[in-house]
């Protein structure tokens, strides 16, 4: 079996982001999605610190300390972009104006619950940022993650054991093994993306039952 690498997962997500979408990309793997969007597709990226129309990283020497992204890295803004304050920014998120957000996760449940902000360790310093607002507010929540933990356990689970970020909000899961839709009647396999992985083997690794209807 040949699994997708991080950039290949990001490229697979990018394929599903349509022209005209307003999109928020989380920190880490989700950020990579931006560089895989086709040049001829207009997608407007929202950065929750106050940008619509986030551009690529600035060239060395062109950084501006007043222009950063949600990960606090130097950023640029596209022609046609806008700046706004934090309450407006989260009105865009909470008010259902963001079409798609892409988040990383520790676990996603069969019901679409997501856990991505806290490992549950007692001495961990907690930090949540905008993850709970995005989970609650975006029209569609895409999750990117490796399918299995280092110990080989599925991160797609019946019930999350880590502290929850949001309930019943994930719509689609992209992993190094598969693309899975979360629907009201359970998990539906969209596509196996790892080369040489059979449905039966994916089902065994996934732990939670997958529905699959081959294209007619």
């Amino acid at each position: 079996m040949k699994r997708l690498d991080r950039n290949q997962i990001a490229a697979r997500v990018a394929r599903d982001i349509p022209e005209g979408a307003y999109v928020n990309l989380g920190i880490g793997l989700p950020t990579l999605v931006a560089s895989h969007l086709p040049q001829d597709r207009e997608v407007i990226i929202h950065s929750e610190n106050g940008i619509l129309g986030l551009g690529p990283k600035p060239a060395p020497g062109q950084e501006d300390e007043d222009l950063i992204d949600a990960g606090k890295a130097p950023a640029t803004i596209l022609t046609g972009g806008a700046y706004f304050h934090h309450a407006d920014s989260f009105a865009m998120i909470r008010g259902g104006h963001i079409d798609i957000c892409v988040l990383g996760a520790f676990q996603v449940s069969a019901a679409g619950d997501i856990a991505n902000w806290h490992t549950g360790e007692a001495d961990a310093i907690p930090a949540v940022g905008g993850a709970m607002d995005l989970a609650a507010g975006a029209k569609q929540v895409f999750v990117t993650m490796e399918h299995l933990t280092k110990q080989g356990e599925s991160k797609v689970v019946e019930r999350c054991s880590y502290p929850l970020t949001g309930l019943r909000c994930v719509t689609r899961i992209y992993t190094d093994l598969a693309v899975i839709d979360v629907k009201s009647d359970g998990l539906h396999l969209v596509e196996i993306v790892a080369e040489g992985l059979s449905f039966d083997e994916l089902q065994r690794l996934n732990g939670v039952a997958l529905k699959y209807r081959a294209a007619a």
Binding site: H86, A87, F90, R94, V128, G129, D133, A136
Partner: peptide, 23 residues
């Protein structure tokens, strides 16, 4: 949560006594 932080600050300045959020 970041959006709740922003809205709680906004509410104080706008004279809103409390609000319900899904976050």
């Amino acid at each position: 949560p970041q959006g709740t932080l922003a809205e709680r600050i906004r509410a104080a300045g706008a004279g809103v006594g409390a609000f319900f959020t899904p976050t």
